[in-house]
């Protein structure tokens, strides 16, 4: 009887933290997103502003908000760039590290993983200075305003790719290392080339890990905030509503419209859930099918 209580006791701290810092905030956000401010008279004095239930009004407002839509389009372009380039490079590097006859593999692996240890703000700051016309060594070879209206999406995607490629490479590489070498030997005896082995054997084996890294990357990309926020002081190209999350921050803390901020953050959450749910199902089936 006492034994049956033990696992719940051991899990109590995690469940308490989950309740306080996840379930409660999520519930509160949903509650706020359905509320609104009612201003009576001139809106001055105590009691002139009250909170009322407004139903889905905050959501319909958010869906009709042009600034938010522009933010979504920017993040869509940025996100596609980041996902394709970052995961593509991570996969390429992981496969290359796993091939025979690679020299200096340790040096390359550590160097490519190094940006993982650099905070997003510091990374943005370093790249931001490298983009700055007065300082940029890049400008010496590439005559483009890297902080201009068109280029800024690419410049920002570059910061995310730089920061994320190493971590994703590591996840894929460790998954590859767990595969018994005998798999490849059999293929080699059958005359398969290294490239065929990579395409026909390694990539299919890596699929769950690729899906996992994709899910994490989608979630991170949809809520991009640090890079555009930290890049803003260096250029006028980035508005205070460049990404949807930046608009949430502005609504909540600058214009003080908590209700629309809550609705928008629920929409951001819903979009990342919808995008990653299909992926996650496959991951769970593969990783925990036996557990």
């Amino acid at each position: 009887m006492r034994a049956s209580r033990v696992p719940y006791l051991f899990l109590a701290p995690a469940m308490a933290l989950f309740t306080l810092f996840m379930a409660l905030p999520i519930g509160y956000t949903i509650y706020l997103s359905l509320r609104g401010a009612k201003v009576s008279g001139l809106g001055l004095g105590k009691g002139a502003r009250s909170e009322i239930f407004v139903g889905a009004a905050n959501y319909t407002d958010a869906l009709a908000d042009g600034a938010l839509w522009n933010g979504w389009l920017r993040v869509l372009a940025y996100g596609l760039l980041v996902l394709v380039v970052m995961l593509g490079l991570a996969l390429l590097f992981a496969l290359l590290l796993d091939t025979a006859h690679v020299r200096l593999a340790r040096f390359s692996r550590i160097s490519i993983f190094l940006p993982f240890a650099v905070p997003g703000v510091a990374a943005t700051l370093m790249w931001g200075f490298l983009y700055l016309p007065s300082l940029s060594p890049i400008r010496a070879v590439l005559d483009v305003d890297l902080l201009g209206p068109t280029a800024v999406t690419f410049s920002m995607a570059n910061i995310a790719v730089w920061g994320g490629v190493g971590f994703n490479m590591l996840v894929l590489y460790t998954a590859l290392r767990a595969v018994p070498r005998a798999y490849y030997e059999a293929a080699r005896i059958d005359g398969a080339s290294e490239i065929q082995i990579a395409l026909r054997i390694k990539i299919p084996i890596l699929l769950p890990a690729i899906i996992l890294t994709t899910v994490f990357s989608i979630i991170a990309t949809v809520q991009v905030f640090t890079e555009p926020t930290a890049l803003r002081p260096l250029t006028n190209t980035i508005s205070s509503t460049w990404s949807p999350l930046m608009k949430v921050y502005r609504d909540a803390f600058v214009t003080g419209d908590l209700y629309s901020a809550a609705a928008t953050s629920i929409i951001i959450a819903a979009i990342s859930l919808v995008l990653s749910f299909g992926f996650l199902r496959v991951v769970r089936d593969r990783a925990f099918g036996e557990g």
Partner: peptide, 29 residues
């Protein structure tokens, strides 16, 4: 040795240079 090994090494070193580039710049700056 396999030419693939050489290409792989070169591509990985390019990746390493890309990842070290801003850090080394900030170190010098």
């Amino acid at each position: 040795a396999l030419p693939l090994g050489f290409t792989s090494t070169a591509v990985l070193l390019l990746g390493a240079v890309y990842c070290l580039f801003p850090v080394s710049w900030v170190l010098v700056a």
